[in-house]
């Protein structure tokens, strides 16, 4: 996939610019532990995020959204691709240490993310202390207050002594202790009960406004992503298939996979329940993904060209920033129905 086509032109407003990000995991087997195959977890992912923007990333398990998050903050090493943060390129004029100070992450499992032997105050102050910031404890108490945890009551408690929602507030406070510009939230509200999830979403919106944060918000819940995001990026088997402002993608899903993902949402209308599943079967294994367009094995519009040629991301909205990688939207692709109105 041509990386540049997914990207808006380079501009100073872009706080993060990711180009051609790739990660393949080796699958080893046998007594000698030879490499048998490769999981193509993330394959040529490119996007840019502007300062203050929230980018939602959606997709099903195995699509590479969490791997993308981990690559961004340097928790795992990328095979290929550039990460440019705040005008500097990781590995060139930007160190991992500086990147992590500017980009923090919140994980799904609020308990596993915290050291059980540290008090809440110590956990939040830990990173700031390592980074050599001034008054880490004062900072921690301040942030506890900001995320709705009274420092007088909670500072000396341990992670197992508080509820799941409170623990996720602690993780958010810990991420903010470094005064980052970007926070990567990987399914950060998914494990919470619905009523608690709404509280944490309100908190995230408040913090974004107060600190001018940029979020990369990863979730499988489309309603949550729509609520919090400015733009949505859809991934399938390690690749980006669609990227668009929320309102545009909500009214029109250009990629057949995106369309299926949206149709799979429960209807919430007892008089109008879903009658047909939009797709059959499970997503294929990212080891040896299908050739050409990776969705062609499940796509009702698939033709020979789809198995052969990899579709590139192209603007389908006349410059409004709605991009999709599908041969249906490329009149030169050779797909017999390319350019037809009303298909997706």
């Amino acid at each position: 996939m041509s990386a540049t086509e997914t990207l808006r032109p380079d501009s100073p407003a872009q706080i993060l610019r990711v180009t051609g990000l790739q990660k393949h995991f080796p699958v080893r087997g046998g007594i000698l532990g030879r490499q048998k195959a490769r999981v193509q977890a993330v394959d040529g992912v490119s996007f840019a995020v502007e300062e203050g923007e929230t980018l939602g990333i959606v997709g099903e398990s195995g699509c590479g959204k969490s791997t993308t998050a981990r690559l961004l903050v340097g928790l795992i090493d990328r095979d290929r691709g550039d990460v440019r943060f705040d005008g500097r390129t990781l590995g060139k004029d930007l160190t991992l240490r500086d990147l992590r100070r500017g980009m923090q992450m919140v994980f799904q499992d609020s308990y596993a993310s915290l050291n059980p032997r540290l008090t809440i105050e110590e956990s939040i102050a830990f990173g700031a202390r390592i980074q050599g910031l001034s008054d880490p404890v004062g900072r921690a108490r301040d942030l506890m207050d900001r995320v709705g945890l009274d420092p007088a009551r909670f500072a000396q408690r341990y992670p197992h002594e508080v509820s799941g929602g409170q623990r996720q507030r602690i993780n958010i406070a810990r991420a903010l202790a470094m005064s980052p510009k970007i926070v990567v939230l990987d399914e950060a509200v998914s494990a919470l009960d619905k009523s608690v999830e709404a509280q944490v979403l309100n908190l995230l919106a408040d913090l974004r406004a107060e600190f001018g944060l940029t979020y990369i918000f990863i979730s499988h819940d489309l309603n949550v992503v729509r609520y919090i995001s400015d733009r949505i990026l859809v991934m399938y088997l390690g690749e980006v298939v669609e990227l668009a402002p929320v309102d545009l993608i909500w009214s029109r899903q250009a990629h057949p996979y995106t369309r299926s993902l949206f149709s799979a949402m429960p209807s919430m209308d007892p008089d109008n329940r879903t009658e047909e599943p939009p797709l059959t079967g499970d997503p294929p294994n990212p080891i040896n993904p299908p050739s050409g367009c990776r969705f062609h094995t499940r796509c009702k519009f698939a033709e020979a060209v789809c198995a052969r040629d990899v579709p590139v991301m192209r603007d389908i909205s006349g410059g409004q920033g709605h991009l999709a990688a599908c041969h249906l939207h490329d009149t030169a692709s050779g797909h017999s129905r390319a350019g037809e109105e009303g298909l997706t």
């Binding site: 299926s260 879903t274 997503p283």
Partner: peptide, 10 residues
């Protein structure tokens, strides 16, 4: 996953 969930529900 979402697309599998709806299949099982139906």
């Amino acid at each position: 996953d979402a697309t599998v969930q709806i299949q099982i529900l139906l």
